[in-house]
């Protein structure tokens, strides 16, 4: 047994080394850096320098507010949408199921830059198909990029478009694990299809939905691509700046690694806290 383990670890060494250097070390290192003033050379230990600044920084609160706003609106909407999509995908009436499954999953595979460019085109003020459609039904066109509310909505739409299908596929797997005869029993119990959904399907899907919600919360806490590429670095005027973007701006534009590390730890801490609250709220009744 011993020697077997030793052999296994020898095989694992290359991976463990890379893991240690590129994962473990940065995690520890950034924690240390978050307690250092990094605008001076050499960096010096100053425990309250970054964290103190964070507590009083309006840019941080702005990014936090934007991130949480996107989180509380986008995640529930997307999960609800994903459940609907999964139920439709699971319907025996559906033809060409494989095609839909692929179509729903495809956005995840599409390159981020390409998809952002397409979104910018689709939502462009004068040439975008979205505004054309709005005008064609008699609505006013929207300047998606210069006003904060439409810009935030755009971010949420984009993120939802990109991840709803992915979550739907996961939820579909959960749906398929519910045995058919439970529904047959309910049919014999004179429970309508709609009630079967609310009283049987949803409760049985709960673990899967919680799983999807946790993944989505973690993802949205780190939201970066969409505000960076679609609304051009958190525009208009920081109106869509997220914590991820703030981190990037501080760390890689201003080269203020200490402050960026503090922001990073805040993001991770918040994600963990929200997830724990979520898990606690959705816990199995004893």
């Amino acid at each position: 047994m011993r020697t077997q383990n030793a052999t296994a670890y020898r095989f694992l060494t290359p991976y463990l080394l890379i893991f240690a250097i590129f994962w473990i070390w940065p995690i520890i290192s950034s924690f240390i850096i978050s307690f250092q003033a990094t605008r001076t050379v050499p960096w010096r230990f100053a425990p309250t320098f970054n964290w103190g600044r964070l507590i009083g920084d309006p840019a941080f609160y702005n990014a936090l507010k934007n991130t949480l706003l996107i989180l509380v609106i986008q995640v529930p909407v997307m999960i609800a949408l994903a459940i609907v999509m999964a139920v439709l995908l699971n319907s025996p009436l559906l033809k060409a199921r494989g095609l839909y499954r692929f179509a729903f999953f495809a956005p995840v595979v599409v390159g981020e830059v390409a998809y952002s460019a397409v979104f910018r085109l689709m939502f462009s003020l004068d040439f975008g198909i979205v505004n054309k459609l709005l005008e064609s039904v008699g609505l006013a066109k929207i300047d998606w990029f210069s006003n904060v509310t439409p810009a935030m909505a755009l971010i949420m739409i984009a993120v939802t478009w990109r991840w709803a299908g992915y979550n739907a596929i996961i939820i579909l797997a959960g749906l398929q694990s519910i045995p058919e005869d439970v529904y047959e029993a309910a049919t014999l119990d004179r429970v309508s299809k709609l009630r079967q959904f609310f009283y049987i399907t949803l409760p049985l899907l709960k673990p899967v939905i919680v799983f999807c919600a946790v993944l989505s919360i973690i993802g949205t806490m780190q939201l970066f691509t969409e505000p960076f590429l679609i609304t051009e670095r958190g525009g208009p005027g920081g109106g869509t700046e997220t914590l991820g973007l703030l981190l990037y701006r501080q760390g890689f534009r201003s080269l203020n690694f200490g402050y960026a590390s503090a922001v990073a730890y805040t993001m991770a801490g918040l994600a963990i806290a929200i997830t724990l609250v979520q898990l606690w709220l959705m816990r199995e009744p004893k």
Partner: peptide, 25 residues
Amino acid sequence: MVFQSYALYPHMTVEQNLSFGLRMN
């Protein structure tokens, strides 16, 4: 009907399993 695989509602207690149909109606 009694099914081979029992087909009980997994998330309900025995009592809820028994009463579910009646409660829903």
